[in-house]
C-alpha cells in the first residue's frame, strides 16, 4: 500500500508542484490549506508523514505540532516542516517540537523534497 502524505500548505503553486511530484513517486497525497484543516485531516485519516508549512493561516505550523504532541494518536506521526526563511530560530524550534527533518522553501527544489520523503520512509 502506498504511503499517505498530508501536505499542509497554503500556497497554491507549491501544492500543485508537490502533490504532482509526490503522486508521481507513488505516494498518496492529502491536502490541508490551514492548520486547523490539517489537524482535522490528521484525525480523520492518519497520514504516514506530514509536510507542514510553518506559515499557514488559522494555526501556525508550530501550533499544529504542539497540538499533535498533546494528542496520543498524533504524537508519533513524522513531520517534515517547510521553513520559509531557514533561520536557525525556526529550525531549532521545529527540532524541539519533534520535527524529523526540514525543507527551506527558498532553497529546495522539488527533487530534494522527494529525497527527504524517501529518507524518512527508510
Amino acid at each position: 500500500m502506498s504511503k499517505k502524505i498530508l501536505l499542509v500548505e497554503d500556497e497554491e503553486i507549491l501544492i500543485n508542484i508537490l502533490s504532482k511530484k509526490l503522486t508521481k513517486e507513488g505516494y498518496e497525497v492529502a491536502i490541508a490549506r490551514n492548520g486547523q484543516e490539517g489537524l482535522e485531516s490528521m484525525r480523520k485519516d492518519k497520514p504516514d508523514l506530514v509536510l507542514l508549512d510553518v506559515v499557514i493561516p488559522k494555526m501556525s505550523g508550530f501550533e499544529v505540532m504542539e497540538e499533535m504532541n498533546k494528542d496520543e494518536k498524533l504524537r508519533k506521526i513524522s513531520v517534515i516542516i517547510v521553513s520559509n526563511s531557514g533561520q536557525p530560530v525556526e529550525l531549532d524550534r521545529a527540532k524541539k517540537l519533534g520535527a524529523k527533518d526540514w525543507l527551506i522553501k527558498t532553497d529546495f527544489d522539488p527533487q530534494e523534497v522527494v529525497e527527504k520523503v524517501r529518507n524518512n520512509f527508510k
Binding site: E11, I13, L14, I17, K20, K21, D109, P110, Q111
Partner: peptide, 8 residues
C-alpha cells in the same frame, strides 16, 4: 514557484 515549475 518558477524554480519548482521549471525543475519539474
Amino acid at each position: 514557484a518558477i524554480k519548482w515549475t521549471l525543475r519539474m
